[in-house]
Design a protein around this nucleic acid. Structure first.
Lengths: 195, 195
DNA sequence: TTATTTCATTGACCTATGTTAAGACTTTTA
DNA sequence: TAAAAGTCTTAACATAGGTCAATGAAATAA
């Protein structure tokens, strides 16, 4: 059972026969990234959808002034990719990079289409994944437009309690939409004012 | 051909038999909203997915301090709803309200499921719609975190050139994520400084 | 038609966060 | 192990946009 984490993940949603499990195992390939390696880059087509086995990654957007904005971190058990680019062949708006040595299971669009034909029940699983993706993007958007930086900081700590151990602080600042200097200042005020 | 706008919309993506067209016609119901009427509200389940025939609507989120944030405007030919709530029965995070007298074609989750069973090719149409929805949310998010208010103002004018005629200015400010006072000031500076 | 609510503008002042720059500490690379 | 690169903190100053308050115009309701 080589890719048991992934199989387990799918079996949260559907049950699979031994034959289906072996289809899954032969469709996904194991990929290892070194710290700082890219999975794919903004401006290229994203032909990869990956399930994280081990490690930490970040997805980010570079704006017209060259500033990076972290959209999300990805931890074991999470998916990374750019849906639009993967399915429609458009250029990706984001870059995905490993923040430490990372193990992934990846698939490309053609193999995924074959897999859907072999195991139709996976369509349902991925419909749910897309739905969750959409709803988490909506939550993040609402939080960004309606909450202060320190509320967003608390949200992040609730979502990923050990985030401070996993990624450098300037990446956290970028996720929050502020500069590292501002995060430093904010943390100091939180400690002092205990507010 | 009672609902020809909707049929035409679908036929951009797939071709339909006369029988299928009549299924569609009997699945959607016409709904008229008066200015200020709500289609559904934040905190309730959204059991309606609507295609706009005539009029203008806005979707907005009310945060914990009671401030409203406009997420989007909807014009003829656009869809409104809350996907998560519609499909999963969770409470909606947004409210949809008519900004003027509005005509819609609406469907509820059960009827939509039947319609998918009768016309499987519509699954593809709605997969594309969800994809577009996701990608436009991503664009809006990236613009919100990386651009200044006056760049976002320009984006909106490009997307909906006659928006100033369609909705009051404080709704535009809310969409941009600033206060009406700030939009007033900004427009004045744009005129003066011609910047 | 008048009364009432909604809307847009302006001004004075305030605050969170950006900008720039410097210094110390840590990790990676040669 | 030395040099280089990356990281975090602090401080002084700048700025976009928020807050509050007042006013007049426009739209809606009585």
């Amino acid at each position: 059972m080589p890719y048991s984490e992934l199989i387990q993940y799918f079996e949260q949603y559907v049950s699979l026969t031994e034959e289906e499990k072996s289809h899954i195992n032969s469709s996904y390939k194991r990929v290892k990234l070194k710290k700082k390696d890219f999975l794919f880059k903004q401006g290229e087509r994203c032909t990869t959808e990956a399930f994280v086995l081990k490690g930490t990654l970040r997805s980010f957007y570079v704006d017209s002034r060259g500033n990076e904005h972290v959209l999300n971190f990805a931890l074991p058990g999470w998916w990374v990719g750019d849906l639009s680019s993967f399915y429609h062949g458009t250029d990706s708006f984001i870059t995905v990079q490993a923040l430490e040595d990372t193990d992934l299971l990846v698939i490309d669009p053609d193999v995924k289409e074959d897999l859907f034909n072999q195991i139709p029940s996976l369509e349902r699983v991925f419909r749910i994944i897309v739905q969750k993706h959409l709803s988490s993007l909506q939550t993040r958007f609402l939080s960004t437009i309606s909450e202060t930086a320190d509320q967003r900081y608390n949200n992040l700590l609730n979502k990923i309690p050990n985030i401070e151990q996993l990624v450098p602080q300037h990446q956290i600042a970028s996720y929050l939409g502020i500069l590292p200097e501002s995060l430093s200042r904010m943390k100091k005020q939180l400690l002092e004012g205990k507010k």
